[in-house]
Nucleic acid binder design. Structure first.
Lengths: 255, 255
DNA sequence: CGTGTGATTGAGATGGGTCAACCTCAGTGG
DNA sequence: CCACTGAGGTTGACCCATCTCAATCACACG
């Protein structure tokens, strides 16, 4: 694979520019030197197959990972074997922060399909953070986004009805695809219904019924994992501020 | 109150040693110089009264905060005004990470009772992190613990029954009191039933019933906010691995 | 053309939400 | 000293969203 190192580096750099690492290294107008230094420490790993794991619960933290191709899920498993999906990670998104606290991973990261990743070894990271001004701040920002996502997730599990959760999930996924440059209204779900259910704190049948209902309402069109959002507006209003949406309707009629 | 500055600083340092900042600055055998430097940037603020807010949603991030006396809650409020409590913060625990991502706070931090805090101004923090080797790593560790707590919370909201949630909550609170050097089996709840409900993703009546039921089962004794854990063992087995506990019982009898 | 895995659908059971009454107690004022 | 008041907490009755259990479907794969 490393048949041509120069070519490889160039390709890597191009990739970094369009993955979440670009938010980690580029924004403050990073120089070419620093960029090279960063590129030099980023490892690639052999491709992963579906259901292969990047790390398991209890593994010592060795690196931060970025999905380069393919998607991942991070899963927490409690004492009685129940799984809770903590997050899904599309190409360009970060994984591995769960071990920051203890140095041991508390989740599993599992490929949802064939995948490739970039890996930033932990010890190298410390050096580079010190060497490149602003990188530490940037990294905090990336971590912060991850924290924010967890908190949105919390809010969703704490207060929302099944149907709202499903709408929020699809809407969020659509936005993430959009920001990756993929079509936002037609894509294929990288994860199973089971995974969705365990992410949303629901049971698979409820997810299935929710999809069917959204389809009956003309909001989406699903067939297996293939999804088309036929009424993005409506999906959005179901997702953000469900009662707002209702209020909007009634207000605009009465006012 | 700041009648004697020298005395004040000494007191502050003593306080830092026993609050979560000690995990942030002391562990790698930090020198006296660095400790002084850290002490110098830590602000105190005037005492806060019950229901006063440290920051509000949308406020720019200015500092990290540590509860010094009294407890806090951090609350997310969604589009239709529903509140989800993201976390409770006992003395020595950190607040303010929620703004790392965007630089704007996405939660409110509100004092549950009379409280005092220490404050680490953000810009000073950056300097000190660079100046004190190992502090950055330590800070990542503290952040990691906060992430871990959010993920436990997620797991709880996603998969657990009301009664398990309540047991987990009380058990976790008890552990935190223990690690603060307070009695772990008898304490007063810093938050209302309402707050507990909104933290657990339940309604207040369910929390109340849950308490009553735990009391009927002889696990706790509650009167208002005063709580005694009469059977810590049983509480723990309800909290961690509910079905394990059941399995244990039946196994130990049959095997 | 079976066989298995994932998804959908239906029917029935139930945990916990909703609504409403009531209790407890601290604070206040007569 | 007692009655009133209001906020927080408890309890009960009812109901519904979601879970459970089970049958069926869809489709990929050997």
């Amino acid at each position: 694979m490393p048949n041509n190192v120069v070519f490889d580096l160039a390709k890597l750099r191009r990739n970094c520019a369009q993955c979440s690492l670009h938010q980690l290294c580029l924004p403050a107008g990073i120089g070419q030197d620093d960029l090279d230094r960063l590129d030099a420490i980023v490892h690639r790993r052999r491709p992963l197959a579906r259901s292969e794991r990047l790390y398991r619960i209890g593994d010592p933290m060795e690196a931060l990972y970025v999905a380069r191709e393919g998607s991942f899920k991070t899963v927490a498993i409690n004492s009685d074997g129940e799984e809770q999906i903590i997050g899904f990670h599309l190409p360009g998104e970060l994984m591995g922060l769960d071990a920051l606290g203890t140095g041991l991973h508390r989740c599993e990261a599992e490929a949802l399909g064939p995948a490739q990743i970039c890996e930033v070894p932990l010890e190298a990271l410390g050096d580079v953070i010190h060497a490149i001004p602003g990188l530490g701040t940037q990294m905090l920002r990336v971590i912060g986004r991850s924290v924010a996502r967890d908190q949105d997730h919390l809010e969703m599990l704490g207060r929302r009805q099944a149907q709202e959760r499903i709408a929020m999930f699809l809407h969020g996924l659509s936005e993430r695809f959009r920001s990756l440059g993929h079509p936002a209204t037609e894509f294929s779900l990288p994860m199973s219904r089971e995974d969705i259910a365990r992410f949303l704190g629901l049971v698979i049948e409820t997810v299935s019924r929710g999809f069917t209902r959204l389809q009956d309402e003309g909001v989406i069109k699903v067939r297996g994992r293939q999804l088309r959002i036929t009424d993005p507006q409506q999906l959005e209003s179901l997702a953000i501020g469900p009662s707002d949406a209702l209020r909007d309707h009634s207000c605009s009629r009465s006012a």
